[in-house]
Design a protein around this nucleic acid. Sequence first.
DNA 1: CGTTACCTTGAATCTCCTCAATACACGTGG
DNA 2: CCACGTGTATTGAGGAGATTCAAGGTAACG
Lengths: 259, 259
Amino acid sequence: MGDNLMAKAKAARPAPMTVTPCQKCPLRRLKWYRDFTPEELKFIASFKSGELNVRAGGNILLENENSSNLYTVLSGWVLKYKAVEDGRRQVTNYGLPGDLIGLQASVFEAMHHSVEALTDVTLCILPRDKLWTLYEKFAGLAFDMTWLGAREESILGEYLLSVGQRRASERLAFILHDLFSRARRAGLTQKNRLMLPVTQYQLADTVGFSLVHTNKALQRLRQTGCFEWVGTSFEMLDENKLATLASYEPPPDKVRPFL
Amino acid sequence: MGDNLMAKAKAARPAPMTVTPCQKCPLRRLKWYRDFTPEELKFIASFKSGELNVRAGGNILLENENSSNLYTVLSGWVLKYKAVEDGRRQVTNYGLPGDLIGLQASVFEAMHHSVEALTDVTLCILPRDKLWTLYEKFAGLAFDMTWLGAREESILGEYLLSVGQRRASERLAFILHDLFSRARRAGLTQKNRLMLPVTQYQLADTVGFSLVHTNKALQRLRQTGCFEWVGTSFEMLDENKLATLASYEPPPDKVRPFL
DNA sequence: CGTTACCTTGAATCTCCTCAATACACGTGG
DNA sequence: CCACGTGTATTGAGGAGATTCAAGGTAACG
């Protein structure tokens, strides 16, 4: 089933892919929040140094390693996680089209988590040595960087609340609702259908349960009829009910205030 | 015991406290990471609009509410947490002297977590309406804001890993080690001693266990002899061993790179 | 000197984990 | 083309881990 996906992605990508013009540029996806000025847009175009394609399952960034680039996701899904020596690992976040990854490497000297590709992924490359110019010349974009960091913090806080306080079915309901609504904002849904490239093993590492227990809890949650999920094919049937099951009230999710 | 603390704090604060000069100003505490230019320092001094004193146990910021100010902690400890309707709550982070709080209110339109005072606290008030000037005129400080947000994200990631993957004694070892080393960096330790104003109930909400189980696991951890903790008086006896018990390798913790 | 807040402990119960086995889809090499 | 290995999903059973209920203890406060 994951292979189905992989096959599609392979087929859809002729060898030398044309580089996406900056109308679709990563930071520009923030137009979901606000519009850029022409100057900002021009700068962003000059910021982008190319694109990086990574196969499903490939590593994009490794914890404790450095990176001379920032990236934003142009297409595909990525997974952010932290590992402990003995093999345990915790998924800390997902990255969907429009999401920024690798900020820690630019701001500290090393990543504090790893990033791997869940599907075949195309990333926009933003060299960190131009980042300083962004701060010096484009206060609006500098503010956006802070905004993005704060958003990440906010998501991690939600996950932490979930893992720390909610029980099995609540956690699953929460994360499925979260992933679905984020995917929808990223324009990845058709009606209530979504290609969800997450295995139960990865889901288990997200909610902090064993694979077996995750599976059993998921069976129970399926019986509520809120959704159907077979292979990578996810269909949302009753979003409100699912949100209720997570005891989760959707965040305001408003446009950036002008300070 | 918590009262001991409160009594001290009361005694130490004569009614109309003099406002701290900006040599000790919040953002300036970042000198732990880097030095400010004279211009930056001058701006920061103009940024600060006053101080706010909050008693132990008092609310500083509430989830879903807005705030027209940013704060940094000048003295005391604060707790950041998210609550679920039925009374459960998850501590997402602690705030020590030098830490920034309330960024979310400035960047979004509402806080995504609450903040309460663990001890009597003095906060530096930074009105958000001057924040824009910071971004326009002081790229270095703007970068610092991003840095602070990324640091918060990093800590939340560590906590998430802990709560999601580590077992009882590991979690406690981790959080105690983390709090101790953060307190030391903030200059709150004398030798290996620390006034740790955290109750077991708050600790339980941090690690995601019930109070009873937290207590029992803590008893076991005490027997390792890594630390002594009676009331608010914490003494670190074997830091490395405690770190090992958490299966936690201390982060590099380096100075901000110059991009 | 009663109240309150915090810490501690035991017992019963439930949640979750590990081990183990099966099943299915897929891709690979013979 | 089939046999085999791999990755994923599923299910059962037994045991460790965590929760809840309940009770008692201490210190500080009014």
